[in-house]
Design a protein around this nucleic acid. Sequence first.
DNA 1: TTACGTGCAAATAATTTGCAGTCCC
DNA 2: GGGACTGCAAATTATTTGCACGTAA
Lengths: 163, 163
Amino acid sequence: MTQSRSFTPSSTVPANQMAATGPGDRTGCPWHTVKAKLREVGLRPTRQRMALGWILFAKGDRHVTAEMLYEEANHAKVPVSLATVYNTLHQFTEVGLLRQVAVDGSKAYFDTNNSEHHHFFIEDQNDLMDIPSSDVVVGTAPMPPEGYEIARIDVVVRLRRKR
Amino acid sequence: MTQSRSFTPSSTVPANQMAATGPGDRTGCPWHTVKAKLREVGLRPTRQRMALGWILFAKGDRHVTAEMLYEEANHAKVPVSLATVYNTLHQFTEVGLLRQVAVDGSKAYFDTNNSEHHHFFIEDQNDLMDIPSSDVVVGTAPMPPEGYEIARIDVVVRLRRKR
DNA sequence: TTACGTGCAAATAATTTGCAGTCCC
DNA sequence: GGGACTGCAAATTATTTGCACGTAA
């Protein structure tokens, strides 16, 4: 039932994300940008956090599971343990570098884009992708019950293959 | 766990013996309505499916996890195994009697209301509730990528306690 | 040096599955 | 009676945790 097939690495990297890094940005390899990011949020820039941060943030918007990131890191000759991947993902999420997306699979997806936007979820392939922010309009925010305020609104548009 | 709703078993009515009732539309104990529902979708109305269906549908819109339903059933003197609860929830979902809602916890929630509507999710309490269908407007449905069509749009409004 | 990080493996938590026995039609 | 259904316990899957060791500041 849970088909964990391999992913085609999504080649669609919107270049609009590559702007606005720190001063002295190096070409396509923002190693010390990652370091700066980590310092900024108070996380010590260790080897594995740097590596994971590099994988996550160097390529624009990404949607990863712990498993995916783990394999990618080890592929890239950066041995990290799965436990560390989980820890790091959660730490990054806590400080706002990542955002956890709830799709209905039992796995947790993490999104490197923490700005206001929503998602397509392709059910057959367990694949997540951003919806251009211009494309969905949440017309009226609903009124929350007494004593509560809205923390976030998540929209997931589930897709199936057309036939 | 957070669901402190008390179950109202109609202790005055020995329900398991009043199968052949007339068309008296009695609120609160639609025993043969459940049976009809099950027959309609091609599921054999067994004792446990009837009981679970009764718990789920007799009280209007509900949001349950497998665990919650399991405890509720056993509380109501209807012993079912947890495995059967899972099986039943999935069978009900497959035939459209239920709908699975993806909130970000690791648990799966099932909603007895399978019509178009969205949800509030109270993060502190892990509590789900319907949003009145008039309250959220998904303005424009986004255009799906080539070859895909929209299966469903899920909106979850996350709430936190105001302070 | 020293507190914070990391790796490993074992522990949980949620859910699924295999199979022998049970019950509806 | 026969095949669909159920219960139990063991198996899977995703994630977390405890603890000895490593490493950035």
